[in-house]
Amino acid sequence: MATTTRPYTPSRPRGAYSRGRPAGGIELWTWFFMRVSGIVLVFLVLGHFTIVHILGDGVDRVNFAFVSGRWSSPFWQTWDWAMLFLGLLHGANGMNIVIEDLVRRESARVALKSTLYMVTLILMLLGTLIILTFDPAKGHSAIVGRFVK
C-alpha cells in the first residue's frame, strides 16, 4: 500500500477518468467502501444540510434546545451517528489517498498518516460517546456531563 513512488500504471478497465478498480487486497476493499459509503452519505449529508441549514431559517434556529430535541429521537441519533461514522471513514480514506499521491518522503507520510488515523479515531470515539449517551432530560451526555457546572 505504501509505495514511495507510484509509476503511472493505467489499470482502467473502461473510461480513462476514474481511479480504476484495484485488483485486490485492502485497496479493493477501500475502493468499494468509498463507493458504498459515498452513496449513503449523499442522502445522509444532503438531507442533513437541507433540514438543519436550509429549512426554517437554517442555522438561525440551531441552539442547544434544537439539537437536544433532535437527539431525543433514536432516528436522528442514528442518522447523525451514521453520518459521523461514514463521513469520518470516507474522509479519512480520501485523505489517505491524497497523502499517498502527494507526499513523497516516507517520514512525512508516516507522520501525516498517523496524525490522520489518530484524529479520526479520537473523533469517532468522542462523537459516539456524545450522541449515544446524550440525555435530553439531564441536558448532557454521560462521562463528560461531570464537567458541566
Partner: peptide, 14 residues
C-alpha cells in the same frame, strides 16, 4: 464534530 460534541457538555457552553 468538535463543536457538535459540545452539546454533550450542556446548554451553556454549546
Amino acid at each position: 464534530i468538535v463543536d457538535t460534541a459540545l452539546v454533550g457538555f450542556g446548554p451553556e457552553l454549546y
